[in-house]
């Protein structure tokens, strides 16, 4: 069973959320669902903790929000990625990929004598 540590989940939250919002605007519950979907349930958040993260990203101007009246007659806060967010996501991708490479180098290559 794959288990992600708390700090690893926290570190990945930013690229995850930005990546999901890259697909189109969304609201909190939906974002959580999408995380579960793409991680195959491997990433398990305390759902409430998503919101402070969203608010922080908004404050950092990486995402922006708007209130939209949903079909059920509820006001939902939709988040979408900003241009700054896209740049940040790009950077995150690069970081994660190179971290990935570092790990690959460490583990897939034979130790050199």
């Amino acid at each position: 069973m794959v288990y992600f540590s708390k700090s690893l989940v926290a570190a990945s939250s930013k690229p995850l959320i930005l990546g999901i919002l890259q697909e189109g605007k969304s609201y909190g519950y939906n974002i959580i669902q999408r995380v579960k979907e793409i991680s195959d349930g491997k990433i398990e958040w305390a759902d409430g903790m998503l919101y402070p993260v969203l608010h922080r990203l908004e404050k950092e101007r990486l995402i922006q929000s708007e209130w939209i009246l949903s079909d059920e007659g509820r006001h939902r806060k939709y988040y979408s990625i900003t241009d700054e967010g896209k740049t940040a996501l790009h950077q995150e991708k690069a970081n994660w990929m190179s971290m990935h490479e570092v790990m690959l180098n460490l583990w897939s290559l034979k130790p050199s004598k």
Binding site: A46, D47, Y51, R56, K59
Partner: peptide
């Protein structure tokens, strides 16, 4: 599933204090 709201609340407070925004 939502988790402990007081933890969420303290996280929110951190966000509010964060930066001058």
């Amino acid at each position: 599933k939502l988790g402990d709201v007081s933890v969420v609340a303290s996280e929110e407070r951190k966000v509010q204090k964060y930066g001058d925004g």
